[in-house]
């Protein structure tokens, strides 16, 4: 029994155990737990203000949970500053993209660059441009001069330059034209094939269905539905995602 337990833990890339996070005095996450398997794509669904972003920020060390445990690749990362968490192989793509607008696209990529990781092919600008061909033609444009869709691609590209094993994306499809959302979905599927694990928060159910394996529905700061995405039935959506 213990051995299987160990084995099970090993193929999890990320385990969040009963974390409690606060903004000031507001208690946002209540004993929130989730586990992610290596190489999978998982999505956090839920209405606004239920704590999706806070969950991602807590994992990334931007918000520090007061209680609980976060294990990444078998190592506790709770309380570490975000730059150390990033160095361990976690990449974060924030909600509003947060491109460095005064830096060129190449410089934005340079900011994200980190040493290669053992067992992974390192990301280089050339490899990035294969994934996001649009960016190649505007290498020397300033980050502030490209469209929202291109910024979203650049934000992901910048994070990839850190050679992460797990990428956290906060509402990547938000504010993008449907045709750009298509491209984004293709890129995420491509990344999955390369062995990168992906955790995203989304509101766009169709988009989530088209790329994810696993779904966690968050409500009132807890995970209230934890299953394979194919088991996400209309009734479940009705129950948790309706207002």
């Amino acid at each position: 029994m213990e051995i299987t337990q160990d084995k099970k833990e090993n193929h999890y890339i990320l385990e969040v155990r009963a974390i409690n996070s606060f903004y000031g005095k507001a208690h946002i996450l209540h004993d929130l737990s989730l586990e992610m398997e290596k190489g999978s794509v998982a999505v956090l669904l839920g209405r606004n203000g239920v704590g999706k972003s806070t969950t991602l920020k807590s994992i990334m060390g931007i918000v520090i949970p007061k209680r609980g445990e976060i294990i990444f690749k078998g190592r506790s990362i709770l309380g570490l500053p975000s730059y150390k968490i990033c160095a361990l192989g976690l990449g974060y793509v924030p909600e509003d993209r947060r491109i460095f607008t005064g830096l060129t696209i190449m410089e934005n990529l340079e900011v994200g660059r980190r040493p290669p990781r053992k067992g992974f092919e390192p990301w280089t600008p050339d490899r990035i441009f294969k994934l996001f061909p649009n960016l190649k033609n505007m290498k020397n444009r300033l980050g502030g001069q490209i469209s929202g869709g291109e910024q979203q691609m650049l934000s992901i590209a910048r994070t990839l330059m850190g050679n992460p094993e797990l990428i956290i994306l906060d509402e990547p499809s938000e504010g993008l034209a449907p045709v750009i959302v298509d491209q984004l979905g293709e890129a995420i599927i491509e990344l999955k094939k390369e062995g990168v694990s992906i955790l995203l928060a989304e509101q766009n159910l169709n988009f989530a269905r088209s790329i994810c394996d696993k779904v966690f529905i968050v409500d009132h700061g807890r995970v209230c539905f934890d299953n394979a995405i194919c088991n996400l039935t209309e009734e479940v959506c009705e129950q948790y995602l309706a207002v």
């Binding site: 209405r47 606004n48 938000e174 504010g175 509101q203 159910l205 995602l241």
Partner: peptide, 14 residues
Amino acid sequence: DEPTAGMGTKERLK
């Protein structure tokens, strides 16, 4: 300007 940006599906429609 994008009145429902950042909202859930049901919330948007409402």
